[in-house]
Simulated assay, not measured.
Amino acid sequence: MATLRIPTPMRGFTGNQAEVAAPGATVGEVLKNLDARHPGIGGRVFDERGAVRRYVNVFLNDEDIRALNGLDTPVKDADRITLIPAMAGG
């Protein structure tokens, strides 16, 4: 199982846990399993087409998945996925 780091604004879905585990062979599978275990978080991560929302950054072991294979990026048990909502401001 991969470990996911959950940002503070999304922790309401995970019982205020900063880290949770979810199984999956790819980043996409892990994120879908995260939503199955913690209903509602998927709506904050995925858009209506099933793509990662543009204001959410997803990192696999400090690498942006957009620079890898996106949601199809393979995941190993010891991997860490970090969700980071983009900051807005001006």
Rank of each mutant, 00 (worst) to 15 (best):
G70A: 05
G40K: 00
G50M: 08
V20N: 05
A86G: 14
P85N: 04
F46Q: 01
I65S: 03
G89H: 05
A2E: 07
I65C: 07
R44V: 11
G70H: 10
I81H: 02
H38C: 01
A88Q: 11
R66C: 12
D64T: 01
V20S: 08
G70T: 09
P9C: 02
R66S: 14
P74I: 02
G12T: 14
L68W: 03
A78Y: 06
M87E: 08
D79W: 12
V75I: 11
R54T: 15
V58Y: 04
R54E: 11
R53G: 08
D72C: 13
T3N: 07
A21Y: 07
L34P: 00
D77Y: 05
D64I: 06
P23N: 05
P23Y: 05
G15F: 01
L83D: 03
I6T: 05
V20G: 08
R53H: 06
T73Y: 14
D77F: 03
V56Y: 06
A86D: 10
R37F: 12
K32I: 02
K76W: 09
T26A: 03
E29N: 00
P23M: 02
N61I: 07
H38N: 12
P9K: 10
R54N: 12
R66T: 11
P85A: 04
N33G: 03
N69D: 15
R11G: 14
V58K: 08
N69H: 14
T14E: 06
P23R: 01
T73K: 05
A67I: 10
A78L: 09
D79E: 10
L4W: 08
N61H: 10
A88R: 14
A36S: 10
A36M: 04
E48F: 07
N61V: 02
G12P: 01
L31N: 01
A21R: 15
D77T: 10
T14S: 06
I41H: 01
T26H: 06
F46V: 00
R80H: 05
G70D: 02
P23D: 00
D79H: 06
P9H: 14
F13K: 01
V75H: 11
R49Y: 14
G15L: 06
V58T: 02
